[in-house]
Design a protein around this nucleic acid. Sequence first.
DNA 1: CGTTCATATGGATATGGGTTTCATTTTCAT
DNA 2: ATGAAAATGAAACCCATATCCATATGAACG
Lengths: 136, 136
Amino acid sequence: MSDLTTQQRPTRQRSALLEALANCHDFISAQDLHARMTAEGTRIGLTTVYRGLRDLEAADAVDVIQASAGERLYRWRPGDSHRHYLICRACGSSRPVDSEVVEEWAGRIASDSGFAAVEHTVELTGVCAGCQPATE
Amino acid sequence: MSDLTTQQRPTRQRSALLEALANCHDFISAQDLHARMTAEGTRIGLTTVYRGLRDLEAADAVDVIQASAGERLYRWRPGDSHRHYLICRACGSSRPVDSEVVEEWAGRIASDSGFAAVEHTVELTGVCAGCQPATE
DNA sequence: CGTTCATATGGATATGGGTTTCATTTTCAT
DNA sequence: ATGAAAATGAAACCCATATCCATATGAACG
């Protein structure tokens, strides 16, 4: 029961979604994922993609970041290790960063503040080496 | 130059917006701010509120956080000091947190990664002492 | 003081990501 | 097989925000 479907009923669409997401090695939006799957011949509704991603998020199987306009980007979490990424604003590529310091800091804030169920989101963006203008 | 209007032309609406935002000591959405101003008798259009907040954001005079559904919350930045907050998911109240550790960490990531112009956003949410259920 | 003109305003309309609805289809248990 | 429960997906909707554009307003100049 701790398998990856995170769903009562395994369906064709669900497994296709899992596969597409696992094969996609960067953050991707629901719409882009749907477009990609459709382009590859998988028949799946946009609604189902949204639902599947929501369920995966609830099951904590994906990392989620907020893009600018309320858009959310999803990424399959390979292990359970890192949860924070440095993302290139130019090309969109992402790399995990070591966030232990931040985890500890967040934990300390949590216990110092009297707040319960403290969660944190950390997002780092920049311009990667390959995307930097030559003259600078 | 470094005055607070951040605008070519000081107008009645603009200064009312500044005042309303400064008087509001927590994060607030554009719509709520507009509603509050209207309730207080200030005649201002929602569009103008959005524009004003966008300009303030560009001028780096407010802190902005992303609420759940793509909604953005704005808060007048009293000084230049802290930039990160711990926000109660139940009542919406916020308190600044000491984030020096995170600033340093982000700086280190920036220089280690080869990324340029690294920016970071950190959001902490929890349930404040006053909002915690008695029986748990 | 009044004319001029660039800029600000704000209601209407559009946009765009995301969610809900509900009729239809699929899966599972019997 | 068969019927109940759950999943699907197209269309309709929601809601924050952006854009359009006609009107209003402040500033500069005479």
